[in-house]
Design a protein around this nucleic acid. Structure first.
Lengths: 241, 241
DNA sequence: CTGCGATTGATTGTTGGACAATTTTTAGTA
DNA sequence: TACTAAAAATTGTCCAACAATCAATCGCAG
């Protein structure tokens, strides 16, 4: 008898959580919007407790912020927070790639998958499929990270990527990066094929850093605040608490 | 009227969570031990729901693992997981230090604090105060990280440090590292005083990596498994899922 | 005696209602 | 208008119950 992957039927809390998450990433629930427990429990036909747990789950992913006695809100991404997300990704994702290469964990299928996502990106771009483009982009980075085999790292990167998604989908700034990103991804793929962990790590780090700074710069140009009108502190500018 | 920091009275859930956390770090609850909701709610004079939320909080910190329909358990740290924790700390903590130095965010008081923790470590060592020694060690690293001003990063490092604590307190292996750690910390302090971010980052990275590999090596020697008797895979050895 | 399946018991998942604590809103007053 | 106090809305916490699932026990065939 072959080993079969047992799929646990998701608990109701998880179902509710993903429902809310999809609503957020679909744009039905915008950043800063309050998430009332009773309202959600009515709409989703569940109890308040279940909604509470679901909201805490999303809080763990960073998609929702919870304040005592004030409730849960869709996370508002300040430029500062976006900077934090991109700097962390720039540190962690290249490290994951390095691990994967050092362990020779990238199978030919993986490489084919990467190439496929790359192809999808180009295709989505030509057909003006914004959503598809972003999805392919995320899948590309996701596959890279997953091959590290580093569970904690993979989990962190998952959350950071979800936040990146939330940010990108709520600003239309990403579009102008499409072409640059595609050639950049091609470069990454090339480096991976050489199998040099050091070089791959450096290349990926640069790609992520560039994406982040590019987005932040254009955010500043447009004067966009992504919901939270905080100070537009540039890059490595730090403020004491 | 001066701005006053309002201290929110901790919610009951948080109180319960810290109570359980302290019990775990005190060693009353050992890794792998089950945490029954009803039992805890009786002991702590609260409702089951409150205990549930507290357990999810601890799950987010990594101190507790929750399985559907099976309950919560004190996290069992496999050598593999310990390797993951130390590699991540080795990547993130030095980066935090670098940020702090680049932003010149280290005040003289901070340096005095670091020196103080260093002093405490030496003192605790001479008086054989194991707990005090570890606490001072953690405080040292905590202060370093906090000055980065990078909220996401600080949060991640907090969780990783708690896990490190859980691990160290459940193995007596740390003791033989005491002296080495103290001189190592002194070296870190020296590099910080020079103010060179690059050098400080490198020094701290080496310190953490050394601590991790040293602990893992001695774990393997003793054949210790910290609860979970998984494969004792060495360092960067990776296994596909 | 051993290995297997069905039954039982224990524990978690989920519900609904209720009340307390706190915030937010509203109304009223100077 | 600004400030204060009452009212409404929302979250925090508790309780009791039932459903769903897991762990242990028991009986039975081999």
């Amino acid at each position: 008898m072959t080993m079969r992957e047992v799929v646990r039927p998701p608990t109701l809390t998880e179902t509710v959580a993903t429902a809310i998450q999809e609503a957020i990433l679909r744009g039905d629930l915008r950043p800063g919007e309050p998430l009332h427990e009773v309202e959600l429990s009515k709409n989703l036909n569940t109890s308040r407790g279940t909604v509470r747990e679901a909201l805490r789950l999303l809080q763990r992913e960073g998609l929702v912020e919870v304040f005592v006695y004030r409730g849960a809100f869709v996370t508002e991404l300040s430029p500062r927070r976006i900077w934090e997300i991109y700097t962390l990704r720039a540190k962690l994702e290249p490290y994951a790639l390095r691990l994967a290469l050092e362990a020779k964990a990238c199978t030919p299928e993986d490489l084919a998958g990467l190439k496929n996502y790359l192809h999808k990106m180009g295709e989505s771009e030509r057909s003006d499929d914004y959503q598809g483009l972003i999805t392919a982009d995320m899948d590309f980075h996701c596959l890279l990270a997953s091959r590290s085999g580093h569970a904690l790292l993979i989990n962190m990167l998952d959350n950071l990527r979800t936040l990146t998604l939330l940010f990108i989908l709520n600003t239309k700034l990403y579009r102008s990066d499409m072409v640059a990103d595609e050639v950049s991804h091609q470069a990454i793929l090339d480096v991976i094929l050489t199998g040099d962990p050091e070089a791959a790590e450096a290349t990926l780090a640069r790609h992520i850093t560039d994406s982040g700074t590019s987005l932040l710069r254009r955010m500043a140009e447009v004067g966009m605040t992504v919901g939270n009108p905080l100070a537009l502190d540039q890059g490595s500018q730090l403020t004491r608490t």
